[in-house]
Amino acid sequence: MIGEVLVECAHMTCAYNSTVAIKNIDLTIRKGDFVGIVGPSGSGKTTLLKAILGSITPVEGHITKKPHLRMGYVPQVESVDWNFPVTVLEVVVMTRSSTGRLPRVTKDERADALLVLERLGLGGLENRHIRELSGGQQQRVFVARALFHRPEFLVLDEPTSGVDVRTRHEVLHLLADLHDEGVSIILSTHDLNGLAAHLPRLVCLNSEIIADGSPVDVLTPEILEQTFGAPMEVLVHGGMPVVVDGVGADIAERMSRLA
């Protein structure tokens, strides 16, 4: 069954001053989707997410969203000021910052926040300063903040950037669980094997959409070279595509000559 449309981009172009970041984007996100946006640095992944979030207005085309769509946003952890004086609990309740709310966290809010933290394996850490957490815990705090808003649609910018393998697995399992619970998800990543290959739908982006489909359909040498501008090979392991850097063999041969 096809889910209702949450977000629809039609011939959308976004630019910063006169520099076009993404152009002619046609993309539909439906309820139940779990979409990964892949592409090289500067390909417009973050711009596309920001357009979906509404923090950038298209210069051409348009974007429509389901009325009153509750969105949660998890930014890149690299953009976070880890030295800022806030505790885990304060970060989580931030999304309830509308005017009229008292400075002090209410009993109900605290109870809700503790439930979300417990759910994400962060129980007992609510009074810790955010810098005192491990990389995986820090990432999950920001997912918790997005979930505290009870979103129908979760937007994540590079959720596994700069994290170790174990944390990447934790994040992937967490997102899969949330998707099973009915949360629609879109994320950007350039981690092809660790994250993108595990998702049900991938969009290859390099200023414009190069391909949109399942990993098996999209992760092909031709599409990848068109997207990343570099030759890549694709192997199949356990029924899943595994992307190999095309210049790897050449470099290995040159390195072996140096040995």
Binding site: S55, P75, S79, V80, F84, M94, S97
Partner: peptide, 16 residues
């Protein structure tokens, strides 16, 4: 709360 959110993370605050 709005001051705290906008100071810590203005982009997400805007979206929220």
């Amino acid at each position: 709360r709005a001051f705290l959110f906008a100071t810590f993370d203005p982009e997400v605050a805007q979206v929220s």
